[in-house]
Computed example of a mutant assay.
Amino acid sequence: MIRVVCVGLLMLGWALAQNTVRVVAAADLQYALSEIAQAFLRQNPGLKVELSFGSSGKIYTQIVQGLPADIYFSADEAFPHQLEQAGRTVPGTLRLYAVGRMVIWASNRLVQQGLDPRQLGPRILLDPRVTRLAVANPVHAPYGRAGVTLLERFGLLRPTRPARWEEMTAGIPAYYDVAPLQRGKASFEFVYGENISQTAQLALTSTNIGLLALSIAKSEAMERAGVYWLAPLSSHLRLNQTFVILQGQDRPEVRRFYDYINTAEAHRVLRKYGFLLPGEQPE
């Protein structure tokens, strides 16, 4: 009798697992992908979607180390491509789903002091009152890498020694001349978030300003607390955001969610949060 009960519980657990789509995703998708999953479940009431968010690079490392997941959404194309090259994905499923946008976000507190990023753009960072800047850690966060290249594009950082992104563990000033950002200030420091969602929280609670994803800046909390300047696509590392089904996980329910990302309903949500769809150009 005990054996039968145990087998029954195991079979129940197996059935529940088969009806669950496990999604690991870049933190810039926190709001958009949650809405997409809710819409998907309304059309597929027998299924379940588990969402986990973090930095693309850290998720990549966890997948390599055996993280159980079905679909991986990255904020870039490099990490999924590395998984594909290593034979850790379902062949032919690596696909571009959106192009990400960067912003400089500032709190209403700074705006009230005359520091409005919509008017100043990157020049806001030169003001003596801006002494701390929230940025995602470029070691493993694509939006952190894009943020560094944005500052470099506008002459606010100058490289001093070459290093691959994943090697920049000593912090941005160890690899770049930050004199333009320090000039006329008693101090200046970068405050690093482990992912772009945590970076937004740092901007909200600590620094009052940050280099953020447009998809995060367009959330209700961030729009209520501040305003942003949208960076031109050409001014930073291009964020070609891709997703892929992981090796051994091409089950019908997984494929159903994977295909749903290319529907008009999912595209509407991605546009709502400022993503460009494949082939689209900014207005």
Rank of each mutant, 00 (worst) to 15 (best):
L133C: 09
L110Y: 14
L133M: 12
R109G: 10
P159V: 04
G144C: 08
I124E: 04
E166I: 11
P142A: 14
T169W: 03
M102W: 08
F154D: 09
A146Q: 13
T131Q: 12
L133A: 07
E152V: 08
H140K: 06
L125Y: 03
R123E: 07
I124A: 10
N137D: 14
S107E: 12
T131D: 06
G155L: 05
L126V: 06
P162Y: 12
L157C: 09
M102Y: 13
I104P: 02
D116H: 07
E166R: 13
A170P: 01
L125D: 13
R109L: 10
L156T: 11
M168D: 01
R153F: 15
V111H: 02
V135A: 07
Q119F: 08
Q119A: 09
Q113H: 10
L126E: 15
N108F: 03
E166A: 15
W105Y: 13
Q113P: 02
D116L: 08
F154A: 10
H140R: 06
R123K: 07
W105S: 03
A146E: 11
R158M: 09
Y143F: 14
W165T: 02
R123T: 03
G155F: 11
L120P: 04
L110D: 08
A134W: 14
R123L: 05
V130N: 01
R132L: 15
V135T: 06
A141S: 15
Q119M: 11
V111A: 09
H140P: 03
I124W: 08
P162L: 04
M102V: 15
E166G: 14
P162T: 03
L156W: 03
R145V: 01
T131L: 07
P138Q: 13
R123Y: 02
T131W: 07
G147H: 12
R145N: 01
R123S: 07
G147R: 11
L157D: 03
V111D: 05
E167Y: 02
L110Q: 12
A163W: 02
N108H: 15
G144M: 04
L151P: 02
P142N: 14
D127K: 00
P122I: 04
Y143N: 15
L133K: 07
R145P: 00
G171K: 00
P159C: 07
Y143C: 03
A136D: 05
G121R: 01
T169C: 00
N137P: 05
P142M: 13
P138I: 04
L110V: 07
R164N: 02
P122E: 12
T131C: 01
R109A: 15
R158T: 14
A163M: 07
P142E: 10
L151Y: 04
R164H: 05
N108K: 09
F154C: 09
G114T: 13
N108T: 13
R158N: 11
N108I: 05
R129H: 15
G171I: 00
R132I: 00
A146F: 04
I104E: 09
P122N: 05
V148E: 04
P159G: 08
S107P: 02
F154S: 13
A146M: 10
H140I: 08
L151F: 09
S107Q: 06
D127I: 01
R145D: 02
L115I: 09
L150A: 15
L156Y: 06
V135H: 01
V111W: 10
